[in-house]
Structure formats: C-alpha cells, structure tokens
Amino acid sequence: MYLLLSILIGVLFTTGIYMVLRRSIVKLVIGLALLTHAANLLIFVAGRVNTPIPPIIGKGEDSLIPPFADPIPQALILTAIVISFGLTSFAIVLIKRTYKQTGTEDLDDLNTTDKIEKL
C-alpha cells in the first residue's frame, strides 16, 4: 500500500512539474492542480495508512487504545483541498483574463516584465 501510494505521489509530482514547465497557460493550471493533489496525498501517507478503526474513546476507557486511524492528517488534507480549490479557481479566472488581455496562451510570449529596457 505504502509503496503504491508513494509511487503515485512521485508520478503526480513529476507530471505536475512537467505540466508547469510547458508553454501553454492551460497546462500550467492543470500542473498546479496536480501538484496540490500530490502534496495532499503525501500528507495522507505521512500520517500512516494502517487501520480503518476510528479514534473514539469507548465506554469505560479514559484514553485511546491503539490501533486507531489518525484523524489529523485527514483534517489537514481537507483544509488543504479547500485552499487548493480556491487557488485553482482563481488561477483559471486569471488565465482567462490574461488570454483576453494579451491574446496569447504561450507563456514564452508573456516575458515583457522580465526585459531589462523598461516596462
């Protein structure tokens, strides 16, 4: 399970970075979305995937008895998913505006702010 998930995370990171490095701005956004998914899965795996038993303190007990599933990574991922959702939707609007304004979807054409002469 760990091995499978680790490979999946690696694949997601690689594809994400590959897509970010492409010249099309649409692929850029897809790449960013993939990268955030990769990070979410990484937290999931780092929080151990061992058991489906929920972390509930039973009657007559005063602390958790292992094994139990750690709820914190899931809470973290939930937060991160919401944030990445916001980021992605903002990025989509941004590329749409950029395309309308500049008339190009090639990132190599969006380099006027890097030039030395003047803005």
Binding site: I25, I43, T113
Partner: peptide
C-alpha cells in the same frame, strides 16, 4: 496580468512544498 501569472505560479509551488 503577466506579473500575476508568474507570482501565482511560483507561490502555489512554494505552498505545495510547504504542505509537503
């Protein structure tokens, strides 16, 4: 908008690294 694309991209990547 040109500046914003660069700014957004690099900051999302940085956030992904932070999260990892």
């Amino acid at each position: 908008l040109e500046g914003a694309i660069k700014y957004v991209t690099i900051n999302v990547i940085s956030s992904v690294l932070f999260l990892s």
